[in-house]
Amino acid sequence: MIVRIMGEGQVTLAESRLAELNELDEELLAEMENGDGPGFRATLQALLARVHELGEPLPDDSLEPSDLILPSPDATLEEVKELLSDDGLIPGG
């Protein structure tokens, strides 16, 4: 699957890795609901770092349809709230 990180580009990621990312997504969702800004920031950084670790970057000139869009590392809590579905950032969690 193709994951876009806003402001950074795209990575390809095996769908089998989504369960691992969903744990961080659920933590992020809970922190957002509780208004935990520092926790939110730390978990967002951890989620994006994990995507980078598990995925393979696509070339900068490649523009594939994204299966999943994640916020940029400097996104605010309010900006991320706008991206959320009922499942969080990563569907199926």
Rank of each mutant, 00 (worst) to 15 (best):
P73N: 13
P38F: 15
I90S: 01
P59D: 04
L18Y: 15
E31C: 08
L89P: 01
T43W: 12
E26C: 04
M6N: 11
L63A: 07
L18V: 07
L47A: 03
L54P: 01
E27F: 14
N22V: 09
T76K: 05
Q10W: 15
E79N: 06
L70D: 00
A49T: 10
E15D: 06
P57E: 06
I5A: 02
I69F: 13
V11H: 11
R17T: 08
R41L: 02
I5R: 09
A49Q: 05
E33G: 05
E8M: 03
N22M: 06
A46K: 07
I5P: 00
M1R: 08
G37F: 14
Q45M: 05
D74H: 13
V11Y: 14
E23T: 12
M32Q: 07
F40Q: 00
P65H: 13
L68C: 04
L28D: 00
S66Q: 05
L84P: 01
E20L: 05
A42V: 07
D87A: 07
E20I: 08
A75I: 06
A75P: 00
A49I: 03
G35W: 15
L70F: 14
G93C: 01
L58S: 04
P57M: 06
I5G: 01
T12R: 06
E8P: 01
S62W: 14
E33K: 12
G35N: 05
L28H: 11
D61K: 12
M6S: 12
E33W: 15
